[in-house]
């Protein structure tokens, strides 16, 4: 008896539905064939599980359907075994084998390169281009800042300046209102002094805004505009409590 006919007779064999001679042939084949014996054990295990499960969960007493499922399980099992055989026949994939020296060299190279990159990045961040770190203006950017600016994580110098001016203008408007409330109570000398100083500040503001309109990259004018805006805010704040 071959494996195929044996497996065809496994179900009736389990149910003692085979003729004595056929059953004897099956029994003889099972004793010699591990695969079919394994299939028999699995069928037995499935049947045992079916017997142990809750009767309510059990499938309807349809013997054909049950045996069809069992047959599917067996077929799947055979297919798995075939896949394993094929896998054993294919040559093994190439594995990367390194000596300790190679691994150590590679590790050292990674450490050195990453350290150098870190040092360059930190130096670039802390020490921008220019002869002296003290020469750095707010509008100058380090490489990291430029990189972050390009990916949109930080503002460009122009956008940052506009945002800062807006914030300063909001503060100036607040103190301007406070001054407007107090101004009527000042004496003439105070009023004149305030107006005189505010006029000087406004002149500088007009000048720097004009410079930046002509040349938005003018870092000194941008820095001075920021300083004069602060001066204006300080003057308003200082006179708002008189």
């Amino acid at each position: 008896m071959d494996c195929i006919s044996c497996k065809d007779h496994l179900s009736p064999f389990m149910d003692d539905d085979l003729e004595q001679t056929v059953a004897e042939q099956v029994r003889e084949h099972l004793s010699a064939c591990d695969d079919c014996a394994l299939a028999l054990e699995e069928i037995a295990a499935v049947l045992a599980a079916c017997h142990e499960s809750d009767p309510a969960d059990a499938s309807p007493p349809n013997a054909d359907a049950m045996w069809l499922r069992i047959s599917n399980v067996i077929d799947a099992d055979i297919a798995e075994q075939e896949r394993r055989r094929l896998a054993e026949r294919t040559p093994p994939k190439r594995s990367w084998n390194f000596t300790f020296l190679q691994l150590a060299s590679g590790f050292a190279a990674v450490v050195v390169i990453s350290s150098l990159l870190t040092i360059v990045a930190i130096r670039n961040y802390l020490q921008p281009t220019g002869d002296d770190i003290y020469t750095r203006t707010k509008t100058e950017q380090t490489t990291i800042e430029k990189l972050l600016g390009r990916v949109g994580l930080i503002d460009s110098p122009e956008a940052a300046r506009e945002r800062q001016v807006r914030e300063q203008q909001a503060a100036i408007d607040y103190w301007d209102q406070r001054v407007a409330l107090r101004r009527s109570q000042w004496d003439k000398r105070t009023r004149e002094a305030f107006d005189r100083n505010m006029q000087v500040i406004e002149q500088s503001l007009v000048q720097y805004r004009s410079n930046l309109k002509e040349n938005p990259e003018d870092e000194i004018s941008a820095e001075m505009l920021d300083a004069v805006m602060r001066d204006k805010m300080n003057l308003l704040r200082d006179f708002s409590d008189l």
Binding site: D131, D132, Y134, T135, D218, E219, I220
Partner: peptide
């Protein structure tokens, strides 16, 4: 010392 920005600023040591 360096004169920068068309002479508007002097920077240096």
């Amino acid at each position: 010392l360096n004169y920068m920005g068309d002479g508007r600023r002097v920077v240096g040591k």
